[in-house]
Design a protein around this nucleic acid. Structure first.
Lengths: 193, 193
DNA sequence: AGAAATTTGGTACGGTAGTGCCAGATTCTG
DNA sequence: CAGAATCTGGCACTACCGTACCAAATTTCT
């Protein structure tokens, strides 16, 4: 179901934004018709009017959120100065792309929740596949522009190291997945360079 | 809440087993009082009698399941013949430890679901932390017994590669996380050796 | 302006969730 | 064996879920 009127479109977007917020704050389980409507300041029925099902709403929200992340990554790529890709700054850049800007642990959790959730929700697969492919090729572009000669395969390896480190770091007593990922990524890059 | 009578203990265990089955088949969301009771062939109220809350039931189920995996891993370690740790057999061994015996994709999903779920459910943290630590030290022992000289840190790296590869493989059109992990792990081991 | 399409929002329904209750049956204990 | 502790299991309450309905209001189109 799509909106046909400007105001309708605005409302639809408000619902999507609300769903994204709930997704970040509370994960998939938090996305309910009533919660979305309330967060958007709209009546309950608007959620079923603009979206055929909760799954569709979740999919659209994940899509918008994922593309916003990609847009952010592309902006970072565009403003990348090849001259000053010192080790640390570059590592932070890669982490920003893979985990989101520093400081938001819940956003990190959502990044991995959606990957794992795809294992049980096949309807997410096409979307998540596309987002993942784009993110990875974006990272390859960043490595390339930064002057690091690197194969697509090796980029995948580095991503795997970060992702694997993060999911394991989530069970630490006081989780700091970004710090853990930073350490491993630095070590891996040092090994290569 | 614990059982004080033999039959009570048996019933309690039956509920835990049922919860594990639901966990494997359908993830965290599938573990409901009624579903557990029905699967165990017991009345609804038995679930609230033996467990103070759903969270406790889930925790106990995850605990038992995790320790069964560790016991399996220890058995594999015990029967490991250092003489015949050819590359392929050894790789399969490591994958068996990290992903469970081959062929069960849902079990793999659960392995990572529980890690990520810990990000939103702090009450799982102590348990998951302990299980993770034990699994990692078990892997270190296996590498050692197999005659591979390797540091704890390097084992962590290899685990991260496998875990990162798996979570990314879950979004493939026809996911085969074990195959993907096998490829990356083989490459990483070849690099070291 | 007037008709048609779209949007609105209050309401209700059927289903399922977690949990509490409690009289009766069973098992343990001394 | 008697009394106490434990366990049983049916039932029901409240809350919340997704979804459907539909008359009224609004917007769009001719």
């Amino acid at each position: 179901m799509t909106a046909a009127t400007p105001k309708g479109e605005r409302r639809r977007q408000a619902l999507v934004e609300a769903a994204i917020g709930l997704l970040v704050d509370g994960g998939f389980d938090a996305v309910r018709h009533r919660a979305v409507a309330e967060r958007a300041g709209l009546p309950l029925a608007s959620t079923t009017y603009y979206f055929d099902s909760l799954d569709e709403l979740i999919t659209v929200a994940l899509d918008r959120h994922g593309r916003a992340e990609l847009a952010y990554g592309k902006a970072r790529l565009a403003e990348l100065d090849p001259e000053e890709c010192g080790g640390d700054a570059f590592i932070e850049l890669v982490l920003d792309l893979l985990l989101g800007p520093a400081g938001d642990v819940e956003a990190v959790v959502l990044r991995y929740e959606r990957l794992v959730a795809t294992g049980r929700r096949p309807f997410l697969r096409p979307l998540m596949r596309e987002l993942t492919v784009e993110l990875h090729s974006l990272l390859l572009a960043i490595f390339t522009k930064a002057g690091k000669k690197i194969s697509a395969e090796h980029v995948e390896d580095l991503i795997a190291i970060v992702d694997g480190t993060v999911v394991n770091a989530l069970v630490e007593v006081s989780p700091d997945p970004r710090a853990a990922a930073r350490r491993k990524l630095a070590a891996a890059l040092a090994r290569t360079a």
